[in-house]
């Protein structure tokens, strides 16, 4: 589904050039459950942003579902993010003035769905994360775990090809974090593709593939055989 060939991402800050990604080759099949690990500054977020079409590589080729995306117009990238990517962030990134319902609805508005279709989808998603009855609450009225569940509902609402989570448990206590990972695992078992950045070996041990980055290069990429369930 994802095919990356010698991807480079160089930040040109004027004086120095930072090579955040160096010659990355990466293939991701449908219905994989992947964690990306590595020290701070190793390029995890940069790689995820490129996978998610939030950022474009400086060099190399990136084909998503067989289509080259590295040279697309920003509007086309926006469309891909809208339809094929579901982002979950460490700090939730919910709109604090919008209700739970409206937050989940947002990607559907950008997709141009009718009010009726939007309502149906939003309710399905809220049901899925178990927060239907909180639909009219503001994010500030929710706990961290609940906020992240709303963010997951929002990521899923447009039926994306891939769910990208950048340290989704980073701001949560370990119990709540586990609940969130449970949701990801369930999504994977239902056929979704999940890519998640984490520092926590306990969390990565539950994924099926672990990619280790170091200095912008893939240091290690292997199936996780210690998986027990």
């Amino acid at each position: 589904m994802i095919r990356m060939k010698s991807i480079w991402r160089v930040y040109d800050t004027g004086k120095v050039k930072v090579e955040a990604l160096r010659n990355i080759d990466l293939f991701i099949q449908p219905n994989e459950f992947i964690s990306i690990m590595g020290p701070s500054g190793s390029g995890k977020s940069t790689l995820m942003n490129i996978i998610g079409c939030l950022d474009v590589p400086t060099g190399g080729n990136y084909a998503l579902e067989g289509k080259e995306v590295s040279k697309l117009h920003p509007n086309q990238l926006a469309e891909i993010r809208n339809r094929k990517m579901g982002f979950v962030f460490q700090n939730f990134n919910l709109l604090n003035y919008a209700s739970v319902y409206e937050n989940v609805e947002l990607p559907l508005i950008f997709a141009g769905l009718s009010f009726r279709k939007r309502r149906k989808r939003v309710e399905e998603m809220l049901d899925r994360v178990g927060l239907v009855e909180r639909r009219n609450h503001l994010p500030s009225e929710l706990s961290g775990g609940e906020m992240q569940r709303i963010a997951i509902a929002r990521a899923l609402v447009n039926n994306p090809s891939i769910i990208l989570a950048d340290e989704p448990t980073g701001n949560l206590d370990s119990v709540t974090g586990k609940e969130i990972i449970n949701i990801f695992e369930e999504l994977w078992s239902q056929g979704n593709t999940v890519v998640m950045i984490t520092h926590d070996p306990e969390i990565s041990s539950r994924t099926k593939r672990i990619i280790k980055l170091k200095d912008g290069m893939i240091e290690n990429d292997e199936k996780n055989h210690h998986n027990h369930q």
Binding site: N75, F87, N93, L106, F110, R154
Partner: peptide, 16 residues
């Protein structure tokens, strides 16, 4: 800025 970033990540085009 952050809100704009969120909307863009969720697929808002420049026009929006």
């Amino acid at each position: 800025t952050r809100e704009i970033g969120i909307k863009m990540a969720l697929g808002a085009k420049k026009r929006f």
